[in-house]
């Protein structure tokens, strides 16, 4: 009986969490314009979605910002992780804590403080500020996915490469980078996902005429509900979900491999935060 209650409780939680998304997804295939009735199955909203210039433009912006910010953040974050890994004592602790703060910081604080910074620096709000903002909040996640890989490295690996005649840069490219590559790729995917996912920070740091998908969804929703939004939200939900599954599977494989090598180092689970910050399609339904 207790077991039955426990299970029911778990199912209820899942139902509560996922019902809005399920409703959203099914409505995106609803031929009727109103939300109250089912007018038969249709792909009409998806077709219209791809014909909407505003939405397509913001899709390009999202992809451009996502890819560029993920790449730049990956390069900076990987370099930073190597620096942190090789530093000692209080400096290491200080930089590590500075890395964690943006992760734990409420997004709205990050967004507003970046906005104030850009105003102070007299930057024109637009692509550049948006890109800088995305790079900024992505860097800690890259650092946190590369660091565990660095800790798993045999500390003599770099020296072994030098010993065999490799100059420092060659040793990094041929030995260290391939060994930490799984962490770098995970960081890249995570950064891309978070960039696509972001609304709050983008909202405060973009300029007129430059809108990401989430900003477009927000502004369209304010003008009244449009079934195209259901379709768009569904696509975004599925895309982010797929990316998170890939990141999760990669980390799980990595952990399995590390355990095989009797490494007790734990891969930091970053996905918890990313899933929680997942796009919230339900609020649009409540508009």
């Amino acid at each position: 009986m207790v077991r039955f209650l426990q299970r029911t409780y778990v199912y209820l939680i899942f139902a509560f969490l996922y019902a809005p998304i399920a409703v959203l997804i099914s409505l995106s295939f609803n031929a009727a314009r109103s939300r109250g009735s089912w007018g038969g199955f249709t792909l009409q909203w998806y077709v219209e979605l791809f014909q909407d210039r505003v939405i397509m433009n913001s899709l390009y912006t999202t992809l451009f910002i996502g890819i560029t910010s993920a790449l730049v953040a990956t390069i900076i974050g990987t370099a930073a992780a190597i620096g942190i890994h090789n530093s000692r004592g209080w400096q290491k602790k200080l930089v590590m804590n500075l890395t964690y703060i943006p992760v734990l910081n409420p997004e709205i604080v990050t967004g507003i403080s970046l906005m104030i910074l850009f105003v102070f620096a007299k930057l024109q709000f637009g692509y550049l500020t948006l890109l800088l903002a995305h790079i900024t909040f992505n860097i800690p996640y890259v650092i946190l996915s590369v660091l565990p890989k660095l800790r798993q490295l045999d500390k003599n690996l770099y020296e072994a490469a030098l010993d065999l005649g490799a100059e420092p840069w060659y040793a990094f490219l041929k030995v260290i980078l391939p060994e930490i590559m799984p962490g770098v790729i995970t960081g890249l995917l995570l950064a891309f996902t978070l960039s696509i996912d972001d609304f709050v920070v983008s909202f405060f740091t973009t300029g007129s005429g430059v809108a990401t998908l989430s900003i477009t969804v927000y502004s369209m929703a304010r003008r009244g509900i449009n079934p195209k939004l259901n379709a768009l939200s569904t696509i975004m939900f599925v895309a982010v979900l797929l990316l998170l599954i890939i990141v999760n599977v990669r980390q799980a494989q990595d952990e399995k491999k590390a355990r095989r090598q009797n490494d007790k180092e734990n891969t930091l689970s970053l996905v918890g935060r990313a899933s929680a910050a997942d796009i919230d399609p339900e609020w649009m339904q409540q508009q």
Partner: peptide
Amino acid sequence: IPPYKRRVNTVFQRYALFSH
């Protein structure tokens, strides 16, 4: 003189093989 310019090679305690 840096290690990569010495005519000396090392076998490390934990081998330090390149696993990739």
